[in-house]
Amino acid sequence: MEIEHLSVHFPINIGTVRAVDDVNWELRQGEVMGLVGESGCGKSTLGFSILRLLRPPGKIVQGRILYKGRDIVRMPEREILELRGKRIAMIFQDPLTSLNPLFRIDQHFIETLLAHEKGLTRKDAYRRAEEMLESLGISPEKLTEYPHQLSGGMRQRIMIGLGLILGPDLLIADEPTTALDVIVEAQFLDLLADLQKRYHLTIILITHNLGNVAQLADRITVMYGGSIAEVGEAGDIFENPLHPYTQGLLASIPNIKLDQPKLKTMPGSPPDLVDPPQGCVFHPRCPHAMEVCRVKKPGLVKRNGRLISCWLYG
């Protein structure tokens, strides 16, 4: 999948929020791509754009999202319905609220299956749901229960089951573990890694938790202020971050081995996306800011096998 010059705007009372600003991005088949950045940097918006699930007033104002050569941005409604769930699945932050409280678990599965596979009987759909639950390590009896009767971790597994039941090749996981406690979170990440291998999934793991990414991701994309700061192999980025923002981000992770007297933090606050700073969006917080950073926005350049958008690297 490739994304070219994608911009997403949210027109609001006081102006336009440029949530995603001219992003170019590429995803490889079968990889786990960690998409990280602080709250409001546009990472979730980017994820939602891929399925055209932006809530109004959010709107894709320019660019293309090419999935297997076809542009999702200009796809007719009928085809996008086909795509959602069947080719690209998405799971969300809060498993507690992602299931309709008035429908049983099996109703969720059956509805999803019948919506995409014409001619499937309810009985067969039910059996498929049972198999899916079993493969997720959940007793099939849970199918007849309502969401409120299940635990958070169980519900997130159900969500992933719902996402995978139609056999998609791309899974967008939008902060899937934020609402889970640490132990359940670890189990869930293991499950995700396992499923990725079993179903040959490409996964976009959207998160602000660098630990999650370190555990799972093959490559990492760091976003800041609606733009991509750095893309590279996970190991490279952790060992040798090039972009000053990535350096700052990694430095602010508490490390139990180092005997830090005080946690390092980044000065300043995320940019105002209604009125973003001129030039590079990061320059007001950047320790290496130069004259050119204030006037001109850097483009993505290749350096040491990764992509980076910073004037330090030309």
């Binding site: 399925l51 699930l53 809530r55 319905l81 086909e82 795509l83 959602r84 769930g85 069947k86 699945a89 998405m90 799971i91 969300f92 932050q93 809060d94 609220t97 992602s98 299931l99 309709n100 409280p101 509805e111 999803t112 919506a115 995409h116 969500m159 719902l162 996402g163 139609l166």
Partner: peptide
């Protein structure tokens, strides 16, 4: 959320 989630499943 469950409305967006249902939309994401192509309902």
């Amino acid at each position: 959320d469950y409305i967006v989630a249902a939309e994401a499943r192509g309902i």
